[in-house]
């Protein structure tokens, strides 16, 4: 049987396929799957310096037993949802303007301008914001110079600034899928709705957003995951109050040397964020397979 199948497929083709797949499988297996399995096993074991080395759910129990951990997670997830929402609200008009309002050449130029800040690393961008917003920063210099504020105001190190930074960091990942779905939106649908008596707000709600839903969801998933997994922006811009869940994981691995606890946190983050995305997809009636297209 198998000999027949092999001769049918052709030995050359099979060899090629095997050769072609090997690096991919090795790559995935060695660099992604294996370490994850190792981490998963680690998350079910206790830190050797904390006593016995058997299997246990202690690391997971710790997460729910210690309010600081799950509160941090709730806070992180909540802010991530908020950031995703805000990013969408900011990105939709931008994407709409780029695709539907300006001429084709201008739109290409604008898209490039949007991409430009992302050619430098996130760290540089965040420091850029810090230079702008810090107490002795550019913005305060102008504000006091123009007499709008009497003394410089510290604009960094609060949640609002952190959220703004996160929105800025993730905006592109929302704008790009939105631009691509908006490009597929026939202008005449918008005009037809307008012609049938709808105002701009109704058009957005009834025509543009439903059409863009797959793009919105794929953008939202990316933004949500990126925000949830962000470390730099909350830490640098949020400052003293902004404990982010990734920082908890970092602390477990790096500061407390408790890799087992850190691994458990990592998997909890994965599981809980997957749940939130699943919930989001359910609520908006989207299918993952359609969204990732």
């Amino acid at each position: 049987m198998s000999a027949v199948a092999a001769s049918k497929a052709g030995p050359g083709l099979r060899l090629t396929l095997a050769l072609f797949l090997t690096p991919v499988v090795l790559w995935l297996g060695l660099l992604i799957v294996l370490p994850h399995i190792d981490l998963l096993i680690m998350s079910f074991r206790m830190d050797p310096s904390f006593g016995d080395e058997g299997w246990s759910f202690e690391n997971y129990r710790q997460f729910f037993a210690e309010p600081i951990y799950w509160l941090t997670f709730v806070r992180t997830a909540g802010y991530s949802v908020l950031v995703t929402l805000l990013t969408f609200l900011v990105s939709l008009p931008v994407a709409f303007y780029v695709t539907k309002v300006v001429a084709r050449n201008t739109s290409r130029f604008l898209l490039t301008m949007l991409l430009l800040p992302f050619w430098v690393s996130e760290l540089v961008r965040v420091y850029g914001w810090m230079i702008l917003l810090r107490e002795s920063g550019v913005l305060n210099h102008w504000l006091t110079g123009l007499g709008i504020t009497a003394a410089p105001v510290e604009m960094l190190y609060n949640d609002a600034t952190m959220i703004m930074g996160l929105v800025y960091t993730s905006m592109l990942f929302m704008v790009v899928p939105l631009v691509s779905v908006l490009e597929s939106l026939d202008d005449s649908l918008i005009e037809a709705a307008y012609d049938l008596g709808a105002g701009p707000w109704t058009i957005m709600r009834t025509i543009v957003v439903p059409h863009c839903m797959p793009g919105i969801m794929s953008g939202a998933i990316v933004v949500f995951m990126l925000t949830l997994g962000n470390y730099l922006t909350p830490n640098l811009m949020g400052g003293k109050n902004s404990l982010w869940f990734t920082e908890q994981i970092y602390n477990q691995f790096i500061a407390s040397f408790n890799w087992n606890q850190g691994a458990a946190f990592g998997f909890l983050l994965l599981a809980l964020s997957s749940c939130i995305i699943w919930l989001g997809l359910r609520l908006t009636g989207q299918k993952l397979s359609r969204v990732v297209q």
């Binding site: 005009e191 709705a193 012609d195």
Partner: peptide, 16 residues
């Protein structure tokens, strides 16, 4: 357009 007593049938109909 949304306040005019005219309606337009588009070339490609533009059904939603």
């Amino acid at each position: 357009p949304n306040r005019r007593p005219v309606n337009l049938i588009f070339q490609h109909l533009a059904l939603f």
